[in-house]
């Protein structure tokens, strides 16, 4: 029993590391995704083409490969390590998720009827005002379901960080196999992921409900 409690607490520390990846990634990728979305919708063709090509590459290759490239790549080219595993993870995850989010944002923004912009213009509102005061909340409402999917995927993707020696929850649990011959802590980690994703699902459900007063 004491061992169970100790391992639970130890894994909680590991989960803290997982949570760091999750939070830092969201903090950077949510706004970055909006910038990428605007880039990909730009009327300036070279910019939109370049942005879309970048998004295609990032979404079309495995996150694990991107992690390895960012972490080990500079070492292979310049002969020395440039990034700590922590920064490599934060950078790679943020960019990867920003690309996914950008596509969701773009879909959301493009789904808003053109009449909303026109109504804003005819009432003398600026484009900026129309976007922030009229369009944005409608976009948010529409993208909640796909965003919640993507964010829950992120929770689980954090486990990929260990390929570049970032010590997160799974790594913490695997140590018990090597050091103590215990297999169960590895399976036990599922509980942490499940509880956390349940919490997220609950929060997104609340948000969805809060915005259900209009359509």
């Amino acid at each position: 029993m004491e061992q169970f409690i100790n391992i639970t607490l130890d894994l909680l520390v590991g989960f803290g590391e997982t949570l760091k990846i999750f939070l830092v990634t969201l903090a950077f990728s949510l706004p970055l995704g909006l910038i990428i979305a605007f880039g990909s919708m730009s009327k300036f063709k070279p910019l939109s083409a370049l942005t879309r090509a970048f998004v295609w590459v990032i979404r079309g290759t495995p996150l694990m490969l991107q992690l390895i490239t960012v972490y080990y790549g500079p070492g292979l080219i310049f002969g020395r390590v440039l990034l700590t595993s922590v920064s490599a993870v934060y950078i790679t995850f943020s960019i990867n998720y920003a690309c996914y989010f950008s596509e969701i944002y773009r879909g959301g923004i493009e789904s808003i009827a053109k009449g909303q912009y026109e109504a804003g213009q005819v009432l003398g509102m600026t484009r900026r005002e129309t976007f922030f005061k009229v369009v944005l909340l409608q976009v948010i409402k529409r993208i909640i379901p796909p965003m919640s999917n993507e964010i829950i995927t992120l929770v689980k993707d954090t486990s990929l960080a260990r390929v570049v020696t970032y010590y997160e929850l799974i790594y913490f649990a695997q140590r018990y196999i090597k050091n103590a011959g215990l297999l169960w802590p590895l399976f036990y980690t599922a509980v942490y992921y499940l509880v956390f994703t349940a919490l997220l699902t609950f929060l997104f459900g609340k948000l969805e409900k809060k915005l259900s007063y209009f359509n």
Partner: peptide, 14 residues
């Protein structure tokens, strides 16, 4: 100088 009422109303739903 001008105002316009659209066929589709275009009210702001929120």
């Amino acid at each position: 100088s001008f105002g316009l009422v659209f066929q589709q109303f275009n009210l702001f739903p929120q």
